[in-house]
């Protein structure tokens, strides 16, 4: 039997090979056959979940909340010291120096990453800006978000912090960070469907031990998660979901 392992579609393109390397390593270490699913969009991910095709998932925190509480997925691991943070930036030439300088009607570019938008909305509150006060400019990639910002076609741009850090040095030099979140309590999580609970001990052991040798460390480097994975209990996940709940409004 082959298990489907879905990777949330918000990873940087240069990590694509790393996820395939991880999939291969997990199969070798656990003895369980895995088929990697890399949906191109959140909508494609949702269709796979609703079709019951997902046995294992590296989920973003927003999606994990519903999967744990509504669908009974079992949390068992998360990346160690790798938190989901976001950046609000603008063109370096912009007169704005902080979020409070943005005004109602401001145009903000973003992708369809809901975690980034959710945290970003909370960071706009000190500027008295609600979702309805913003002209949202949705694009397909963080590179496109950056282009709009540095051409000053938008007043600000939302980035996943890792994506912002992955932008080229030249691009970043033409942008200015207005605020960066430092929440350090919200991260991606690895979940298993209850139907694979019997195989979970082998999968969990394989994932948590992945950094134990040179080959495993190479995989983690390719993923951009050099500290590897750590166990996540049901209560750890519930705590994070409660925290996310406070950020919904």
């Amino acid at each position: 039997m082959t298990l489907n392992f879905l990777i949330a579609p918000d990873f940087a393109p240069e990590r694509f090979a790393g996820w395939h390397m991880l999939n291969t390593a997990l199969q070798r270490r656990s003895g369980i056959k895995l088929h990697l699913l890399t949906p191109a969009s959140p909508a494609e991910q949702s269709r796979a979940i609703e079709a019951g095709q997902v046995d294992l998932i590296y989920a973003n925190p927003f999606d994990a909340a519903g999967m744990v509480r509504d669908k009974g997925y079992i949390p068992f691991a998360r990346p160690r010291m790798a938190f989901d943070e976001m950046v609000i930036a603008c063109a370096a030439s912009s007169p704005a120096t902080r979020v409070e300088d943005l005004r109602p009607g401001a145009r903000i570019a973003l992708t369809d990453n809901r975690d980034v938008k959710l945290i970003g909305l909370r960071l706009l509150e000190p500027a008295d800006l609600a979702e309805s006060d913003i002209q949202w400019v949705a694009v397909d990639s963080y590179q496109a978000v950056a282009r709009l910002a540095l051409r000053a076609e938008v007043e600000a741009a939302f980035f996943l912090a890792q994506a912002y850090a992955s932008l080229g040095r030249m691009t970043r030099s033409q942008l200015k960070v207005l605020v960066e979140s430092r929440i350090r309590d919200i991260s991606h999580v690895v979940l298993a469907h209850p139907r694979v609970a019997d195989q979970l001990p082998q999968i969990s052991a394989a994932l948590l031990g992945i950094g134990g040798d040179a080959a495993g460390l190479e995989v983690l480097e390719a993923l951009g998660l050099p500290a590897g994975f750590e166990p996540m209990t049901q209560e750890d996940a519930e705590f994070m979901i409660d925290l996310m709940d406070t950020l919904l409004d």
Partner: peptide, 12 residues
């Protein structure tokens, strides 16, 4: 109970 505090609006 979980309590989360964030930066407030000075207007408020």
């Amino acid at each position: 109970f979980t309590s989360v505090r964030r930066k407030p609006s000075r207007t408020k």
